[in-house]
Design a binder for these strands. Sequence first.
DNA 1: AATTCACGCAACCGCTGTTCG
DNA 2: GCGAACAGCGGTTGCGTGAAT
Length: 250
Amino acid sequence: MVRAPYFDKNGTKRGAWSQDEDSKLKAYIETYGHRNWRELPKLAGLSRCGKSCRLRWVNYLRPNVKRGNYTSEEEDLIINLRRDFGSKWSLIAKELPGRSDNEIKNHWHTHLRKRADLSFSENKSNQNLESHEDNSMSKLSHLKEEDRADISLAAESVRTLSAEYIKSSSSSSSSDSCHVGSNSDSSLSSKVQPFEDSLMKPYLADTFSNTSYEYWMPIMDLANRPFLPSSDRDMLMVDDFLWSGVEYFQ
DNA sequence: AATTCACGCAACCGCTGTTCG
DNA sequence: GCGAACAGCGGTTGCGTGAAT
């Protein structure tokens, strides 16, 4: 089930932990704490690296760790939190006392992902954009006050840029009938492209590479609400199905 | 009974963010 | 302000186990 113990070229032990090592680590941390993981193994008499000790403690040895036997409530909670937080396992773990992020992550990949995918496809046809927009606001609720402030600020910037763009583009052409997905309007691509280039790409390039879309999706929703006419909102790629597709293939 | 294969999970790896000198 | 050291996180890997053939 686990990797067989072995020593790497530096003489550091790796692989499965023995009972003796567990007791040494537990005894040391219970007595002295774990202020410095790097130094800890030496002081505790272990031939392990600090990282390995930390992982072992967090996942198995710390007090009140729950093992196995997930309740259906826990599983539902994980599925819901995964939908809202994305792969932020440490955040999810905070909502499930006694469960470690690693264990939750494993449980998700081995048991819950298929179940979540199934319920995703079942629910997909029943969703509508309005409920999604309401949901997107609630997605911010778990964030710290300052993080929400940052997102509001980012949303405000996008909103301002959007308004400026609409103002400048409306002076040169009519946009009332533009909708994403309609190939009949030949002006669409020329309009969407510069809009995406000027507003979206610089922002998305930074954000999307580091953060799951659940974090910036609310920004987009905030950004597209008050200013943009519905046709232009469509061009901001707020199509619910499209974005859900992104999540689906993550 | 022997072999193959898929699954589950503990542990590792590499990257990012934070702290400190 | 900068770089090194450290802590923490998420993705991936390796291997034991049990089911299937």
